[in-house]
Nucleic acid binder design. Structure first.
Length: 597
RNA sequence: GGCGGUGUAGCUCAGUGGUAGAGCAAACGGCUCAUAAUCGUUGUGUCGUCGGUUCGAAUCCGGCCACCGCUACCA
């Protein structure tokens, strides 16, 4: 039976190109997951986009001397290209500066407001005198009132580690332009999180199958929920659709509020572009649909606490009750698949320290599947993982190239040389049946791991089939069977069948290589479909266009089963699907990201 | 400070009560179809530390040590 699966992928902040840490916990795992579900026959909707609002964008734009829109136009394209190159199969990768997103966000806001979950409050905050914009605490610098050290930030002092309030800093200065911030009282709208204490708490208590760290962390949060501001004094964001607020150029919805709604607005945009504007309902209104959210651990609070609260408030399911808005009752997250962090030589990726590896550099030199394999086999799934070139070279050369690449080359070369086509199997023996059986059984074990987002275990199980096939060939020695062509053909047929099965099992991880292997085995057409960049017109704003990622994944042939290979298909001597990495890479790193000693 | 995580073979890790595991690395041997690839054999550990529960603990409980993350106006 086909299930509707929504793959909701965290929205990258549009302030620069992606590094491999960004995609290791989010892009690659979510894509492996989605590809698997499509192969099983489920209806997958995979959405994400660029998160483009907020103070950091504005600050950076000013630093670069461009408008915020120019900045995000540039990086949206760069990030989309990174994802395309990696083969992340979004049904829609869009952005938050679209007319559609603005409309959906405002509609959700209005429903929350009508249901009583949004309340005004007057607060005191730092404001830049020259621009009138909110100055977030971390952009205020001064002397720490506790330990007296200079250079403390408004949110926290790095010297003594205490949390601070920007208003308490001595000699506060804006880190953006050095001016002295004003502390003014200003009215803002708040999401009334305490009004979800009971509803969110009881919802969480019914969650099963979530990773325990996500559940524990969120339960902790629920114990102490305070109203959270959803507006800012800023002119870069979604306008507040309320009488009196909509005309103020310096009041906008706070970026986190509009960004999480992106999962839903992107689904709506996808539906509108598909020709059936209500098509999103299969994933959002049908309680049988599954929605799985992929993000880094720093984002758990937004996905397990705030986003469910927004949805409950919209649905009228919070402690204050209410009724759903025009979108009807929207599904809450079924699973929060949060990842840990990829570190670089023991510390966080850092642009300023030069410890960073950009996706586009990586793709240019190694192509997508080596990175995809490494992340799947050794990514930060349950704990932080340190990326080293040494480990990368080892995994790729010994596991991917030697075992899998060589098996493909070995089996097809043998068949091509001896038969020139997929040979006819004669009387199979026990060893043949056993190998084929274990390959067939792997569809269950690997599939179970993938459904539970256990990508390391899944790829390991798939590789087990590869090892078994190598061992089988060594034992059966088909190259010594010139005097018994029937037996030789049976062995070669078996080996090719298992290569085909292993290729299917590896397709979610290695979609590009899988396409090649499909063709080496004599197949034609699209085995694993890839996303494409498309330039589209904004659906609601005249004269505006932007690039999206989308794809026609229904035309791909890959399906999650052992398909009998077609006897008689011509085979020719293959070219290796992977080139081995130079071992020197392990010591020096590539010249665009050299290892520093 | 609070919350949480991690500490198992040289390396990367799996292993939630019943005689310590995998892959890689190392050593030796086989094979030579294949990208010097592949197959087989072999070793290795006070499972951070101290104590407790138990017939029995890497596995449960408590103390301690080391490293790390989060701590909400960060998007």
């Amino acid at each position: 039976m086909s299930t509707s699966v929504l793959t909701a992928v965290a929205w990258p902040y549009t302030n620069g190109p992606r590094h491999i840490g960004h995609v290791s916990g989010i892009g690659v795992p979510s894509d492996v997951f989605s590809r698997y579900h499509r192969m099983v026959g489920n209806k997958v909707l995979m959405v994400s986009g660029s998160d483009e609002h907020g103070t950091p964008i504005q600050v950076q734009a000013e630093k670069e001397g461009v408008s915020p829109r120019e900045l995000v136009d540039r990086y949206h394209r760069v990030i989309a290209e990174d994802m395309r190159g990696l083969g992340v199969s979004y049904d829609l990768y869009t952005r938050t500066t679209t007319g559609n997103h603005y409309g959906v966000v405002q509609q959700i806001f209005l429903t929350l407001y009508r249901n009583g979950y949004i309340v005004p409050k007057t607060t005191t905050g730092a404001v830049s005198p020259s621009t009138g914009r909110t100055l977030p605490d971390r952009y205020v610098e001064g002397t720490c009132p506790i330990c007296g050290s200079d250079g403390a930030r408004g949110d926290q002092c790095d010297s003594c580690g205490n949390q601070l309030d920007a208003a308490d800093l001595k000699n506060p200065v804006s880190r953006i332009n050095g001016e002295i911030p004003e502390f003014v009282s200003t009215e803002h709208l708040f999401l009334d999180l305490p009004a979800f204490t009971d509803s969110l708490g009881s919802w969480l208590s019914t969650r099963t199958g979530w990773r325990s760290n996500v559940l524990n962390f969120t339960r902790n949060l629920v114990e102490d929920m305070r109203p959270r501001p959803i507006t800012r004094d800023l002119d870069w964001g979604v306008p507040v659709p309320l009488e009196g607020w909509d005309k103020q150029s310096m009041k906008r919805l706070y970026v986190w509020f509009d960004a999480v709604i992106g999962y839903f607005s992107a689904s709506v945009e996808w539906a509108r572009r598909s020709g059936d504007p209500d098509a999103w309902r299969a994933w959002w209104n049908d309680p049988a649909a599954q929605s799985v959210y992929f993000m880094g651990k720093d984002n758990i609070t937004f996905h397990a606490q705030i986003w469910p609260s927004l949805l409950m408030g919209h649905n009228g399911q919070g402690d204050l009750g209410g009724t759903p808005g025009p979108y009807g009752e929207l599904n809450l997250p079924a699973e929060i698949a949060s990842s840990e962090f990829l570190t670089m030589s023991g510390s966080k990726f850092s642009t300023s320290r030069g410890t960073v590896i950009y996706v586009n550099d990586f793709l240019r030199e190694f192509g997508p599947d080596m990175l995809r394999y490494f992340i799947s086999a050794a990514g930060p799934e349950t704990q932080d993982v340190d990326f080293t070139w040494d480990e990368f070279v080892r995994r790729i050369n010994f596991e991917l190239v030697n075992e899998w690449g060589n098996l493909v080359n070995r089996a097809i070369s043998l068949a091509a040389k001896n038969v020139g086509a997929v040979p006819v199997p004669r009387a199979p023996e026990a060893a043949d049946e056993e190998l084929k059986k274990s390959a067939r059984a792997a569809f269950d074990t690997v599939g179970t791991h993938l459904r539970h987002s256990r990508f390391r275990a899944a790829s390991q199980e798939a590789m087990r089939v590869v090892s078994a096939a190598n061992k089988y060939l060594s034992e059966q020695e088909p190259w010594k069977r010139k005097d018994d062509p029937d037996r030789r053909d049976t062995i070669l047929h078996t080996a090719l069948q298992v290569v085909s099965d292993a290729n299917t099992l590896l397709t979610p991880f290695l979609p590009h290589a899988a396409q090649q292997v499909h063709e080496l085995l004599g197949g034609t057409g699209v085995w694993a479909a890839q996303p494409e960049m498309r330039e589209v017109s904004d659906l609601d704003v005249a004269d505006r266009s932007y690039p999206i990622l989308t794809g026609e994944y229904t035309r791909e042939q890959a399906s999650w089963e052992s398909k009998p290979i077609e006897v008689g298909r011509p085979l020719s001597k293959p070219k290796p699907i992977f080139a081995k990495l130079d071992p020197k890479l392990a010591e020096t790193g590539p010249d665009w990201a050299p290892i520093r000693h």
